[in-house]
Amino acid sequence: MRRAVLIAIPYAWLLALFLVPFGIVLKISLSDTAIAIPPYVPTLDLAEGWAGFRAFLSELDFENFVWLTEDDLYWKAYLSSLKIALISTIFTLLVGYPMAYGMARAPEEWRPTLMMLVILPFWTSFLIRVYAWMGILSNEGFLNQALLWLGVIGEPLALLNTNTAVYIGIVYTYLPFMILPIYAALDRLDGSLIEAAEDLGCSRLQAFWLVTIPLSRPGIIAGSFLVFIPVLGEFVIPSLLGGSGTLMIGKVLWEEFFSNRDWPVASAVAVVLLLILVIPIVLFQRNQQKQAEAEQ
């Protein structure tokens, strides 16, 4: 009895505030836009009973999804989100791996401090960390000032409101998500394995390539998904650092909803985004499961 209550409370909460809203998104994605409140038709009229429900069903269609394929804004936005997510994941890995590796090789007594230094930005507001780059990347910002002063460039580069700024922003804000799982994997790695590899005739670099990298692979995979998945739906970074040329689906959805007030299309955008996300999420889960099994 008590157990039933214990299960029921969080279950009901998640059903009501996670699953049901989702059903509503799905339903509205099949509706049509209208100038009304709420701004879509049909709305379900329960007073009419079964007939009302049938009428309601018959008015649902896939028009919005067809629309997504017709207007090239949408599929370009999906593709561009995928591209940005992929490239920035690679960059984050390239920056994060050496840091995680350095942390794992640092003296024991430094590690908690280094760890804290990685975690601290994670607890700091995301918005503020993105904002910090606005001042750096602008035309008269510090980066341009520094480069001009060094004589690397003759006139300021346009950095803010470009895809470059978006990449920098993503790498910067998502770096802890990449470092932590890789560090965890490297930290578990037995140092004598490297010594054994060197003993068997590997050079340092070979040992790194043949032993360290393969053994830290679960960490690399986990970190990459932890960056890739949320970046795909990212909104704040493209809207603050990106320009009009930066197409990302999170931003498109936001504008569709808040600016165009086209709820059905916004919902359809959300449904498709979710379908795209299913693949990496499933792959990520499988990686985590394999790792959990390997640890047992």
């Binding site: 840091m99 350095g102 794992a104 640092a106 003296p107 780059w133 750096i136 490297l186 790695l189």
Partner: peptide, 25 residues
């Protein structure tokens, strides 16, 4: 694994500089 090579030192220094300089500014 406590032999910090120059590569480790450089990557940690640059990495943490990257993480903290924007906030410092």
């Amino acid at each position: 694994m406590t032999r910090l090579s120059w590569f480790n030192v450089v990557s940690l220094t640059l990495g943490f500089a990257f993480l903290y300089i924007p906030m410092l500014i």
